[in-house]
Amino acid sequence: MEKKDSGLNRRNFLKSGLVATGALALAGAGAFMLDRNTAQARVRPDFLRPPGAINEKDFIYGCIKCGLCVQICPVQAIKLAKAGEGVAFGTPYINPRIQACDFSCDALQCVETCPTAVLNFKPFKEAGLAAVEKATQEAGADFAKVNPFEVQKVAMKQIVRMGKARVNTETCLAHHGLGFKGVSRGTDFRGIYRAPESADASASPLAEKQFDREVCNLCITECPIGPKAIVQEPSRSNGNLVPKVLDGCTGCGVCVMVCPTRETSIIVEPS
């Protein structure tokens, strides 16, 4: 009796085990195909990886999709990818046109919180410490006046490379010599940021801000990095004062969020 039972059991196991293996193979093939087909087009101007992201090949398995970076971001710029992104489902991304990373957390907290270091804090830590050391040396006898926190946070955000901004000269207001007056993205736009001239520590809504510019330069004045990233200079073709993106651009996307044209005239191309 017992023998017959175990025989049936073994046959049952082989049969269901085969079905299970088939299902696993299907899942594997599906994941492989999805990854191959979406890997190239995955990171794009409306799907930027958060600051400090390592290369996409390692990112896609290194990210355990916990969402800690999402939770710590004070401006909620980071979202988790939906099912449409295939194997990237649940991984974090930033769409700067909706909500850019404005560095108002001051210390790249999403990077610091990541347990698997796919947002890698090491280079930021090193850059911060090096900058503090340099500043203290330069200050000499006045070293006590150096605020290490300020020095550190500036140095850290400057080495972020989420991508680099590129201006669309066809639609950019400045390229047509046009100014801008009013609320940039309409009064019901929900995006927030900390403007460079703001004394407030937290971010405030873009919709509450009135601009009045003879020549549109919002992307230049609102940039959290400043003249190392984007400057105004006369265009070679017609002499209009237009924005020029420099190598210091971090790809944070604040320019993309504040751009007043219907379709953004400046995008961040992922690095």
Partner: peptide, 14 residues
């Protein structure tokens, strides 16, 4: 095995 072969956290999507 699938994770190693596809270099993806396959199970996490299911």
């Amino acid at each position: 095995l699938l994770a190693v072969l596809t270099r993806n956290l396959v199970f996490e999507d299911l």
